[in-house]
């Protein structure tokens, strides 16, 4: 089943979720590592190239994910109403931070009009330009990325709590099972 129902996540939502999870962890780890590379490190140029290619891919998929979320049903929350509200807020923040990190990353590399190469297949052109862009967006990218992984870690902990302590289907539902 591709699409979501009110009881279960469809395979498109599930695939987007788990791709994002892996990509966010990989991008955060690689981004942190990149910030420590010295000029003479063999990966000084190649690592950002991969980081940007994966980042642009995740940006495209995240935009698709937001659209998909809006046009397909969302499975009913399994939590009590106040928990469900907190979860909604948390999920909303994660989407917002994901877009903030991805867009600020795009704005760093395109700050002086250069496009971003995506795996060498094609290029994403620069668009918005403003003063001190790379420096300001670099700072935003760093703090937003940290906030995102902290929230994502909380998100994962809550999923495990619901699974092991509350014995709810929150986690298994995202693995493709019904509730």
């Amino acid at each position: 089943m591709l699409s979501n129902t009110s009881e279960r996540w469809g395979s498109i939502s599930i695939a987007l979720h788990w791709f994002s999870a892996v990509a966010v962890v990989g991008l955060f780890a690689s981004g942190w590592w990149i910030s420590t590379l010295t000029y003479y490190h063999p990966w000084y140029n190649a690592a950002p190239w991969w980081h940007k290619s994966v980042g642009i891919t995740l940006l495209a998929l995240t935009l698709l994910r937001v659209v998909w979320r809006l046009v397909t049903p969302t499975p009913r929350p399994l939590e009590h109403s106040h928990e469900a509200l907190a979860a909604r807020l948390g999920h909303g923040l994660i989407y917002l931070l994901l877009l903030t990190v991805l867009c600020s990353g795009y704005l760093i590399s395109t700050a002086e009009g250069s496009p971003i190469s995506v795996f060498g297949w094609f290029e994403i052109p620069a668009s918005w330009r403003f003063s001190r862009q790379a420096t300001l967006m670099g700072t935003l990218h760093w703090y937003a990325a940290w906030t995102l992984v902290i929230l994502a870690a909380g998100h994962a902990l809550f999923a495990l709590k619901h699974h092991f302590l509350d014995h709810r289907a929150t986690l298994t539902r995202m693995l493709g099972r019904g509730s």
Binding site: I108, E112, S114
Partner: peptide
């Protein structure tokens, strides 16, 4: 000093860091 420009955003960001 924040107006440094060498036609490479990441390098300029690094030079200004």
């Amino acid at each position: 000093t924040g107006s440094l420009y060498s036609n490479h955003a990441e390098r300029d960001k690094h030079l200004m860091s």
